[in-house]
Amino acid sequence: MVQFTFIQPDGTRNTVYATPGMSVMETAQHNGIGGIIAECGGSMACATCHAYFDADTIAKIGASEGNEHEMLDFAATPRSEHSRLSCQVEVSEVLEGAEITIPDSQV
């Protein structure tokens, strides 16, 4: 299991134990984390699972690319260099201790 923390827009922190192989989006939904909506279920069609990853983690997992990179232009809360679609980030050891901030709005 890998342990990391979701941070809500109001600062509330929820630390979860995640299963490698699942996506961060699936982990959020499995743990009842609000604000990661993922209406399309991970098919990169909606950009409603946008999240900001801390700088160290982004350096390890890499920035968004391809379709994910384009879709982030249309996220409801403006993207930053720390933005990823959480459906496209797979849980692995590199996420240990990561801090994942949920944006104000997803739609």
Binding site: G34, I37, E39, C40, G41, S43, A45, C46, T48, S105, Q106, V107
Partner: peptide, 12 residues
């Protein structure tokens, strides 16, 4: 915004 008016999953 967490409503299900547009469904959920692959048929969203």
């Amino acid at each position: 915004q967490e409503h299900m008016a547009f469904g959920r999953g692959l048929h969203h």
